[in-house]
Amino acid sequence: MINVLFAVAFLVLAPILGGLIAGIDRKLTARMQGRVGPPVLQPFYDVGKLLEKEHVIVSVSQNFFVLAYLVFIAFSGALFFAGGDLLLVVFALTLAHVLLVLGAYSATSPYSFIGAERELVQLMAYEPMVILAAAGFYLATGSFSVMEIAAFPRPLIAVLPGIFIGLFYVLTMKLRKSPFDIATSHHAHQEIVKGVTTEFSGSTLGMVEVAHWYETVFLLGLFWLFFAWSPVIAVIALAILYLAEIFIDNATARVRWGFALRSIWAVTLVLSAANLVWLQYFGGL
């Protein structure tokens, strides 16, 4: 069963929460680098300004793809918070990212083209881990339904430690953070300009930003499931998790895509295989 109320709440509140997280992220990052940093609300000002910019395009279809990307990111997040089927959420998310990649391809610039190829490499890198995480939740709780997984009365982190670490390893890439920020170069590494988003501007770029906020909240929701039996611990765990990501982001240099792919696949294979075999043969909680 799914809960439409939660879906609506996600659609309304997630951009606010996601934007705030982005603002705090920038503030903390600045402090780690010895800067003062922008106000916490800066991401909202940025997107607000983007929305007012002139409508400039390279190809007609690029805006369509970005709009569809935003719609399906929001859709998959809403489906997740409504308590829907976890696999379906994963597939909707894949669809969303493929749409973003197609938007980048349609822009035809060499920079966005390489960005698109790298975004696909990223997708290929993290997809197995995400699918296997869904499988892990199923083996531990007997259900793919997010609602039932979240209502599971015992700590899932205790039976899914391998899945948790693997997913955390992948999270850096999903949040577009160093060392795995290879497709958009969020941190002004110059060689591919801005990768996927090079040719997006104005309100289109704003949509990409908002989609990123939605996705951040969704990802935190995914990690919530490991701790869902105790909301207090969950909030603390998520805060620590995100702080760790900010720290890793600032403490590491970006790696080549080949290394990113290889290491993520290795981590996925070893940790999730061990965890899943253990679950299937020795049972859950």
Partner: peptide, 17 residues
């Protein structure tokens, strides 16, 4: 939505460095 995006846009060449 392509119908909407087709109109009133300023078309530029892709960025070529």
């Amino acid at each position: 939505s392509l119908l909407y995006f087709r109109s009133g846009r300023h078309r530029l060449a892709p960025y070529m460095g």
